[in-house]
Design a protein around this nucleic acid. Sequence first.
DNA 1: TAGATTGTTAATCGATTAACAATC
DNA 2: TAGATTGTTAATCGATTAACAATC
Lengths: 203, 203
Amino acid sequence: MRLPRYYRYLGELLEEGVERISSGELSARMKVTASQIRQDLNNFGGFGQQGYGYNVKYLYEEIGRILGVDRKHHLIIIGSGNLGQAIANYANFERRGFIVSGMFDVNPALFGRSVRGIEIRSMDGLEDFIREHDVQIAALTMPKTYAPQVADRLVAAGIKAIWNFAHTDLTVPEDVVVENVHLSESLMRLSYRFCSMQEEREK
Amino acid sequence: MRLPRYYRYLGELLEEGVERISSGELSARMKVTASQIRQDLNNFGGFGQQGYGYNVKYLYEEIGRILGVDRKHHLIIIGSGNLGQAIANYANFERRGFIVSGMFDVNPALFGRSVRGIEIRSMDGLEDFIREHDVQIAALTMPKTYAPQVADRLVAAGIKAIWNFAHTDLTVPEDVVVENVHLSESLMRLSYRFCSMQEEREK
DNA sequence: TAGATTGTTAATCGATTAACAATC
DNA sequence: TAGATTGTTAATCGATTAACAATC
């Protein structure tokens, strides 16, 4: 799924005041082929115009709609350590419609503390909170040992989207979507590429 | 690159005390085809044995070697906010040989503070620090506006691996590897899939 | 030896790229 | 109308799956 990346580049173009762009120009910026850009965009609808290219503002908004960032999504963060707080503090998510409604933790020492005005709560009230605040997305930023059981509670409470930062895979019903962010795997991929590159240099 | 995921599953098997595993069993656990597992593993060498399967410990160690987690890598974190601290605090990276040697920030209020014994430093000493501590990897956890210029400094100082959490793409020489972790794009992918699923349900 | 399971080849599938007709 | 650039089809490439001979 490359739409989020297009969305980012279009946002930058918009800030630069660029009004229109051709697949060729965008291709040079993003370092993907113009062909791929046209294919990708055309799969979701004919957003361009022959002889003109793509209107930046229009395309940006259309992609935003497809990605669902034109509407509000209420989000909770389960695990209020540094990673949970990092997410809570990243104000730009809010601009995209992702509103952090609540934070949770198992550590009583954190209860009542708040991050950017968002109170950290006990896990006891999780289900009630989800219902009362119309929460759609849950970010899991707690240790991997707790993640599967918390995911089960979330699913039982009706959550349909899980942003999983725990270093484990989750088993969920097929109508629940999980997006994994496995940082340790990401770091190993970097390490792998770094080592391969080093071996190449030695030749 | 699926090796890090295999590595994770093999580590779990090892903890469970499983001695050997066939591509078929691993396939069921990981939810990928047995054919793909055999292809993947065979690309890096013949780690299995006909009629037996794969020895978990041996395969785990071999993959570790390929990923470079059998050696030590010195890592610095540039940007000492919540995200930088989250990485510094994740002790498991250390177990894989990734040693956080230093943390940096532009905010003088943080200088001298330390996270898990790692001192937060001024950006002034960056180049000297990299040289003196034989730093190989830099994690970029600062706002996107600073990232490109910091990346340039890192490259000039000889860094060959950048773990980029800034919400922008970096331009580096071809012998420098960059692994991007674009959280906002990850969240949009989740949102996209969530919205698609919802539309499907409505049908 | 018989059974199990890999390594590996061949077939299938999907994604990327190239090319160009349609059209603004 | 001429030029530019998309939308779209066809060709290419690579990745996944299936199948089975090799072999432990």
